[in-house]
């Protein structure tokens, strides 16, 4: 081990303890018997039971999932298009404005995005509900998708597309048959990112949802304002578990496939 001193070991231990302890406490106390969240009174899963019977949470979760699936799917299509235009589109009228609009939402405070969209929806007389939240989430998450996809496109060997054209593909076929299959992993992670952003979003949803569509973060926020509650702990634990399983699985899968690729390449190199 080169230069891996006690100092480094300490900063890693303390750092990761800082990152994970709060969540760990949350998880442990979701199994607490008592309603008093800071006093341990024995193991129980009752809060999971009462959470599953809480219709308002279930409704909110259902709304959130609908919004997340719809917005992340549209955002992936639009974001991939935007990325392709920015990386491969060449020059066109208003390209600077376009790239500005793609990158600005990334740094735009959520309160401003939310406020401006709300004013727009009111301005054109659009009733707020699931539809408006989907529009809002699509708009900001397409920009994140576009960043993920365009960073993949930048490193994409342009001669692959040229080869497809050279072999008789129309530009659209070249994209469908060559570019898309190759950048698919980036597109999928763009979708996942958009999905997560939509699941997570409180501020923009609060502005654009209106009273008819309460998403899970809005529901959680209004509950949390009252203070800590064991049901919320249980809900958090479920969400943390889903994310952890998802992210760890994804990283194992991608690790495996890159290892397999490496093995193949080494085998091919030896074969000659």
């Amino acid at each position: 081990m080169r230069r891996f001193s006690w100092f480094n070991a300490t900063s890693l231990t303390v750092g990761f303890a800082f990152l994970y302890l709060p969540m760990l406490i949350l998880i442990i106390y979701s199994f607490n018997e008592s309603r008093l969240v800071t006093v341990w009174a024995g193991f129980s899963t009752q809060w999971y039971g009462s959470l599953l019977q809480n219709q308002s949470f279930l409704d909110a979760a259902w709304v959130t999932i609908q919004v997340a699936i719809a917005s992340s799917t549209i955002a992936t299509v639009l974001g991939t298009m935007a990325a392709y235009v920015l990386v491969r589109g060449g020059r066109f009228m208003g390209r600077t404005v376009f790239s500005g609009m793609v990158y600005a939402p990334l740094v735009m405070p959520e309160v401003i995005t939310g406020l401006s969209l709300l004013l727009l929806f009111i301005g054109i007389g659009l009733d707020r509900g699931i539809f408006t939240v989907v529009l809002a989430h699509t708009t900001f998450s397409m920009c994140f998708v576009s960043v993920v996809v365009s960073s993949r496109l930048v490193s994409f060997d342009k001669s692959l597309e040229e080869a497809a054209l050279d072999l008789g593909c129309s530009p659209f076929d070249a994209f469908r048959l060559v570019t898309l299959p190759i950048i698919a992993p980036a597109v999928i992670s763009g979708w996942l990112l958009a999905f997560t952003l939509s699941l997570d979003d409180l501020v923009i949803a609060s502005f654009t949802a209106g009273p008819s569509a309460t998403t899970l973060p809005i529901r959680i926020f209004s509950a949390v304002r009252m203070g800590v509650s064991p049901e919320i702990n249980a809900l958090s634990t479920i969400m943390i578990a889903i994310v952890t399983v998802g992210v760890v699985t994804a990283s194992i899968v991608s690790k495996r496939s890159s290892l397999a690729q490496q093995r193949d390449e080494q085998a091919a190199a030896r074969a000659t």
Partner: peptide, 18 residues
């Protein structure tokens, strides 16, 4: 990276109890 994928709201909330 893992906390980044975890709900922002929940991560903030976890500190109230602490």
């Amino acid at each position: 990276i893992l906390p980044f994928w975890t709900s922002f709201l929940i991560r903030v909330y976890s500190w109230i109890g602490i």
